[in-house]
């Protein structure tokens, strides 16, 4: 048999072997979170390459080598799931590098990080000044996690006392011109609803590349033909605009009328509408 056939045969065999092994070890192996996954990743790759190209090597020796690096990490993972001590040794612990806005030089030295390197890692987190950081940990996988001081963190709804909004995830219900029934069901909609919405926007389902429905039941479409303008969902902004208009009208009526009783009635209702608008506008603006 010519050598190139051997290479094809070994290549395909190891491709399947590595594929099965990665499936066995799971997503964790791909993310290479810990020391063990890092070395087993490198070693398995080298063994496979060595056996595929170096035809002098026995193929079974290669398979045994790869299997060792798959099976031992697999069992160590199971052990470390149950025991914190094993976990600390095998997966490693994070090292605190910045505390209270101050660099901990001893820990830096222990991890052999230079000032330039730690600054580089911080810049990767969009931090250019060390004193903006309250706390930073060098994780076991070598990435830096940064907690900014409260003053430097982005503003959230909670900071400015806005009412909390509990938004549910959007569902993708049309892909490549086909509706996805189980997604449609988990969005709490049915085919009739979808047909009605599509008719409203004047498109057929074959022309839709992607369609998503958000938690308030609004459908957003992306068509194959980008020249066609799809109207954005207008229901909510329109509702808010109508409320504003009505509120202004009621205030106008209150000013215009001569009857004291009617004036009070208009003013009270204008106030009610204003309150209702205040409650609703965070939801309607979104």
């Amino acid at each position: 048999m010519p050598e190139w056939i051997h290479i094809i045969y070994r290549g395909v065999l190891f491709l399947i072997l590595l594929f099965l092994m990665t499936k066995l070890l799971g997503k964790k192996q791909i993310s290479q979170l810990s020391f063990f996954e890092y070395i087993s990743g490198i070693t398995i790759g080298s063994i496979a390459a060595e056996v595929i190209m170096g035809l002098d090597n026995n193929i079974w020796h290669g398979i045994i080598g790869v299997a060792i690096f798959a099976v031992i990490p697999f069992f160590v993972e199971i052990l470390s799931l149950h025991n914190k001590k094993i976990r600390d040794v095998v997966e490693g612990k994070g090292t605190v590098l910045i505390k209270d806005g101050k660099l901990l030089e001893d820990n830096l030295k222990k991890e052999k990080y230079t000032t330039d390197e730690i600054l580089q890692l911080l810049r990767g987190k969009d931090v250019f000044q060390v004193n903006e950081v309250e706390y930073a940990v060098l994780e076991a996988d070598g990435k830096l996690s940064v907690l900014l001081k409260k003053d430097n963190r982005p503003l959230t709804r909670k900071d400015i006392d806005l009412p909390s909004i509990n938004e549910k995830e959007p569902h993708t219900i049309i892909m490549d011109g086909e509706m996805i029934d189980d997604k449609l069901a988990s969005a709490g909609k049915n085919r009739a609803w979808l047909k009605q919405e599509l008719d409203k926007q004047n498109v057929t389902i074959e022309n839709v590349f992607l369609g998503q429905v958000d938690s308030s039941g609004q459908l957003t479409l992306d068509l194959y033909d980008d020249k066609i303008q799809v109207p954005k969902p207008q229901e909510k902004p329109l509702l808010l605009a109508n409320m504003k208009k009505c509120q202004a009208d009621l205030e106008l009526f209150a000013l215009a009328t001569d009857s004291e009783k009617a004036k009070r009635l208009y003013a009270a209702n204008a106030r009610k509408l204003q309150e209702s608008m205040d409650v609703l506008s965070p939801h309607l603006k979104g």
């Binding site: 909004i165 938004e167 549910k168 938690s215 308030s216 229901e235 329109l238 109508n242």
Partner: peptide, 14 residues
């Protein structure tokens, strides 16, 4: 409009 929003949304508190 509010009534149709109430029917269409699937977040309970909303």
């Amino acid at each position: 409009g509010l009534s149709s929003l109430a029917i269409n949304t699937n977040a309970e508190d909303e």
